[in-house]
Design a protein around this nucleic acid. Structure first.
Lengths: 220, 220
DNA sequence: CGCCTTGGTAGACACTGTCTACCAAGGCGT
DNA sequence: ACGCCTTGGTAGACAGTGTCTACCAAGGCG
C-alpha cells in the first residue's frame, strides 16, 4: 500500500520495505557480523517501528534465509555468465576459476552461503536446491568431457572437484593461507592455479589406487 | 575453594566449576545448537547462579573458544595416534582417512572447529595455532615423501590435499552427499575412497598444466 | 587480628525475539 | 454509499540474554 500511494521513510528509494530489510540486513552483517544481525536493528536503521519487519518476515531466521538466498542467486548468475569455452576441459577450468574468484571477491556472500550454520535447512526449500545448483554445473561439464558411460565415476569425479574447490575457497576466504606459509600475493595465486591444475589433471587422467583404513576414534 | 573443601552442586564429579561449564556447554551445543548456547543456561543446568560462570570465563565468546579448543585437542590426539606406516605414501593416506573418519564420527566437533564463524579469531591466540597443527602433520608427510628440494611445490601439494580433504569433510558432514546423487551408504564410502585415492595420485605423480583466467564479478 | 584474593551470590540494565492488541487506508462486493 | 476484509504500519508487554555492579563468605597470610 504505502509502496504505491504513500511512500514512507523506509522505501524512499522505491524498493519497498521488504527489499530494504534484505539490503539493510546484508549491510549489518557486513559491518557488524552475522551474530549482530537483529530485526530491531534493521528496523532502527530504516527508521520504522521494531515490528514492521515482522510484516514481511515471520522471524529472524527467515530474513536470514532470504539474504542467503540472494547470495546464491548472485553466485549462480556469476557462474553462468562465464564465457563459453569450446573444450569441456577448458570449461571445467573456467568453472573452477570462477568459483574461486567469487569466493575471493565476495567473501561475505561466500561465507553466508557455505559457512553459515543453519538449523533446519530443509525447512527453507528453495535454499537447499540453490545450494546444489553449482554442483549441477560442474557435473554437466564432467559429463561433456567424459561421456555418460560411467555415471558413478562421473559423480565421484565431480565430488572430488567440488571438494577441492570448496575446501580451497574456504581456506583462502578465511585467510588461512599465510598460516600455512603461503603469504605473498603472487605465491597465493600460483598456489591456487596449481591446485586447480591438479583437479583438472585428476579428472582428465584418473588412475585410482587403494589405501588401508584406520581405526575409529572413541565416541565422546 | 569449594573445589577443595566444600564441593557444591556443580562439581560433585570433582571436575571443578570451570570444567563443568565447558562440558555442559558442549552438551547444550549438541542438543540445542550453538545458537542456543548461553552462559545462563549453563549455570541453570549446573544449578549455580547465573553469574558463577563469569568467575571462570570473561564472556560467552571465551567459553566458546575454550570448547572449540578442546575439540582441536581431541582432533589432534586422534590424528597423532594413527598407526605408524612404513611408507610415507601410506602414511599420507592414513592421515586423510583419519581426518575424514573424525569428521564422520564427531561431526559436532568438526563443525565447531572449522565451520563456526568466530569473530576476532586472532584474539584467541591458542586457537589459531591449534587450527593449523593438522596442516603441519600433512606437510611433514609430504616432505618425507618428496624430499625438501622444492619447498614451494610441497606447500602447494599440502594445500591441495588439505583443501580436498577439508572440502570433502564439510560436504559429508553437512549431509550434502545425497543431494548430489550419492545416497547409498556403500556408494558414499566408495566415493570417499575414490576422492582420497585421487589426492594420493595427484601428490605422487603431479603433472600440472595451465588454464585461462575468467573475468571478475562486479563488486556488490 | 585485619586484610587480600577467590569464587560464589543477587540485582539491575539494555538489548533481543516475538506475542498481542491496536489502527489507517485501500479494494471491493453489495 | 456503505461496511467489511486485507495489508502494512504502530506501540506495549514478556521472557530470555550478556554483562556491569555491588555484595558476601571463606581461606591464606602478614
Amino acid at each position: 500500500m504505502s509502496e504505491l500511494s504513500n511512500p514512507t521513510r523506509a522505501d524512499r528509494s522505491g524498493l519497498g520495505v521488504r527489499e530494504a530489510c534484505i539490503q539493510e540486513a546484508l549491510n549489518i552483517i557486513a559491518t557488524d557480523g552475522i551474530e549482530n544481525l537483529s530485526l530491531r536493528e534493521v528496523a532502527r536503521r530504516l527508521s520504522i517501528s521494531h515490528q514492521a519487519p515482522y510484516k514481511h518476515f515471520p522471524n529472524r531466521e527467515d530474513l536470514l534465509a532470504e539474504v542467503i538466498g540472494r547470495a546464491f542467486d548472485d553466485f549462480a548468475t556469476f557462474l553462468h555468465s562465464r564465457p563459453v569455452a569450446e573444450h569441456p576441459q577448458q570449461d571445467l577450468g573456467e568453472i573452477g576459476q570462477r568459483y574461486l574468484t567469487y569466493a575471493r571477491v565476495k567473501p561475505l556472500q561466500y561465507r553466508l552461503m557455505f559457512e553459515t550454520p543453519f538449523p533446519n535447512l530443509h525447512r527453507h526449500a528453495g535454499l537447499e536446491q540453490k545450494a546444489t545448483a553449482a554442483f549441477g554445473l560442474l557435473h554437466d561439464a564432467i559429463r561433456r568431457l567424459r561421456g555418460n558411460d560411467n555415471p558413478e565415476a562421473n559423480r565421484e569425479l565431480a565430488l572430488f572437484a567440488w571438494s577441492t574447490v570448496h575446501g580451497l575457497a574456504s581456506i583462502t576466504t578465511n585467510g588461512a593461507l599465510p598460516a600455512v606459509g603461503i603469504s605473498a600475493p603472487d605465491a597465493q595465486s600460483r598456489a591456487v592455479e596449481h591446485v586447480l591444475a591438479m583437479i583438472c589433471n585428476g579428472i582428465v587422467a584418473p588412475s585410482p589406487f587403494t589405501i588401508s583404513k584406520p581405526n575409529e576414534p572413541t565416541k565422546p
